[in-house]
Amino acid sequence: MIEPKYVRTEQTGETLVVAPLFTFATFAEADLASEWNVVQQQIETPAVKNVIVDLGEIPYFGSTVLEWMVQMWKRVRAKGGKLATCNASPIGREVLVTARFDKLWGVCDTRDQAQEWLSSTHA
């Protein structure tokens, strides 16, 4: 099995944890698109209800990761699920808040907190 270079996923129960591994310093559009397609397919499987985006592997990110998150959020919402982010760096959190994404989903400090947020009754 080929190790993913740009995004790693793991499933815990009905939650898919998605960890982007790239910043603008490590980037190849075509390969990125290919791995992103795989993630989208995983989200579409019946076993996945919620998504946690773990940002702990990257110190910063731009609009590509933001766009991914909105797309994932829309997909899980359409299935009645929720999305939460966790482990963002201070700049990462600043980007999320600047883009007002804290209004759309849970912005949590840790993966455990994200899991708790998903289990709670937040919209």
């Binding site: 731009g62 609009s63 829309k74 980007v95 759309l104």
Partner: peptide
Amino acid sequence: EKVSGRGLLL
């Protein structure tokens, strides 16, 4: 909820 349009904001 729009996917894109955040580049200029950043």
